[in-house]
Simulated assay, not measured.
Amino acid sequence: MNILITTIFEYPHEGGLSTHVTTLMKGLQERGHQVDVLSFTDMNPVTRKLFTQAPGYLINKVKKGKGQLLNDRQKMKMLKSYIEKVKGKYDLINSQDIYAALASIESGIPTVATVHGYFSYEAISRGAVIQGSPEELEIIETEKKAYQQATSVIAVDQRIKEYIKRQADVEAYSIKNFINVHEFKVDRSKAEQIKTEFEIPKDVQVLFVPRRLTEKNGVIYPTLALPKVLEKHPNTLLVYAGTGEQYTNIEQTAYKLGIQDKVRLLGSVPHEKMKELYSIADIVLVPSIHSHGVEEATSISALEAMGSGAPVIAGAVGGLKEIFEHEKDGLLVEEKNTEDLSQSIIRILDDGSLGETLSKNARKKVEEHYSHIAAAEKYETIYKEALSLKQHNL
């Protein structure tokens, strides 16, 4: 099968969607399919800036959210024009966002839409759109149209599947996120070398937050929980790898608490290097929260942490509650509860055997339930059904 994966976002980029695409592509290729990606990155750079970035940026200064919509619509038009040029090469398209779904559907090629989250809620959560505004209502209508017109829809967790049913009365498939379990078995023998590369002291205990620095990821809470951890484990360093609107908030909070030398913000880190950072983590933190209706899906960061051999502490929200069995393969903490978070961190740092047990069980679960090959097989089945549906309707 010749498959085209489409998105209006850049690829590769920082975040779970990009990782999902790379890992799915690898699994499909290993199953013998030809897979290409068409993203915003593939568009002409001059046209991108003139028609899909600059106008929206200026309009957004006058009316928040309106520029965001303009940019997304322009990206959709550009993507549609590129698909038209290459559509003869492909049997099926797997879109990764609502605007890519609509651009792909208009090509006439069977389109399977993968839904990674709540598009309208997430726009509000990151401050791009105002809640209750005409712009939010338009995004909701765009979501509905994309879900209803796609040949098939796949949600990355059960809650998103239920959201699609509520929004558009469409029955989606549910395939949880996944990782390449072979590539993500981290080699911890090079920990000292990796610490040197990232200028991290060799003798510190590392708390690692591998997240985009956005509100729904709860990234401020590890910083707020750190002072209590430092009282008992002063040789602890909190390391963030990611960018986002919460960067400045974390930085300012660390200074306010007087722990700026115990918090390290690495900024954007390539995915290959992220694997190395997992290998020096004593604990990985995935402290997600509810934010403007947004819940964490089956977090790829959490799955990667589980596969890496580091114990994980996660917020008890959304898909994270589906991934982890509390006390067996991870610790779940109440969202926004810094006391719960700090005590859970201290508990693992105090008891090395607990961390080892959690890590071992987590790795086993990832191998058995979250393999990219098993996920690719499920996607392949849905692709074949989508092709049959299209042929039946001709």
Rank of each mutant, 00 (worst) to 15 (best):
Lys360Arg: 14
Ala191Cys: 07
Arg212Ala: 10
Glu171Phe: 00
Thr298Met: 07
Ala128Phe: 02
Val112Arg: 02
Tyr57Asp: 10
Glu325Thr: 09
Pro134Trp: 12
Leu303Tyr: 04
Ala386Glu: 14
Val209Met: 06
Pro270Asp: 14
Ile8Tyr: 04
Gly132Asp: 12
Val206Phe: 03
Met43Ser: 12
His369Gly: 00
Arg159Asp: 07
Val153Glu: 06
Gly309Gln: 10
Ala123His: 05
Asn2Glu: 14
Val35Thr: 06
Val186Asp: 05
Glu162Cys: 03
Val312Lys: 03
Asn44Gly: 06
Asp187Ile: 02
Leu349Phe: 08
Ala54Glu: 04
Val333Trp: 10
Val263Cys: 08
Tyr99Asp: 12
Asn361Glu: 15
Asp42Glu: 15
Gln34Lys: 15
Arg159Pro: 00
Gly267Ile: 02
Asn337Arg: 02
Ala191Arg: 08
Glu296Lys: 09
Gly330Lys: 03
Gly15Phe: 01
Lys80Met: 11
Gln29Ile: 09
Tyr57Ile: 07
Ile8Arg: 03
Ile283Asp: 04
His182Arg: 14
Leu303Met: 08
Glu339Val: 13
Ile220Gln: 12
Ser299Asn: 12
Val62Pro: 01
Gln29Pro: 01
Ser133Glu: 10
Pro222Phe: 04
Ser174Asn: 14
Leu50Asp: 03
Pro201Thr: 05
Ser39Met: 08
Pro134Phe: 11
Ser344Pro: 01
Ser189Thr: 14
Gln246Glu: 15
Leu277Arg: 03
Thr298Phe: 08
Ala297His: 06
Met306Ile: 03
Gln205Val: 00
Ser279Ile: 04
Gln205Tyr: 12
Ile164Tyr: 00
Lys195Phe: 15
Tyr163Met: 05
Lys165Leu: 15
Glu197Ala: 06
Ile346Asn: 03
Lys256His: 12
Leu102Trp: 05
Glu141Gly: 05
Tyr247Gly: 02
Gly242Arg: 07
Thr6Met: 09
Glu215Tyr: 13
Leu266Gln: 07
Val229Arg: 05
Phe208Glu: 07
Leu389His: 11
Glu231His: 08
Ala225Trp: 03
Asp340His: 15
His326Lys: 05
Tyr121Gln: 15
Asn60Lys: 09
Gln131Phe: 06
Lys321Ala: 13
Ile5Leu: 15
Leu394Asp: 15
Gly318Asn: 10
His33Phe: 13
Asp203Ile: 01
Lys365Thr: 05
His33Met: 08
Ile98Leu: 15
Gly242Thr: 08
Glu295Phe: 11
Leu237Cys: 06
Tyr379Phe: 15
Leu266Pro: 01
Gln391Asn: 11
His233Cys: 02
Lys232Val: 10
Gly16Cys: 06
Thr23Arg: 08
Asn249Arg: 12
Ile8Glu: 12
Lys190Val: 10
Ile3Gly: 08
Thr111Ala: 13
Thr111Trp: 04
Lys364Asn: 11
Thr6Val: 04
Leu230Phe: 11
Ala305Trp: 14
Leu238Val: 02
Lys195Pro: 10
Gln34Met: 13
Glu10Trp: 00
Glu136Arg: 07
Ser344Lys: 13
Phe324Ile: 03
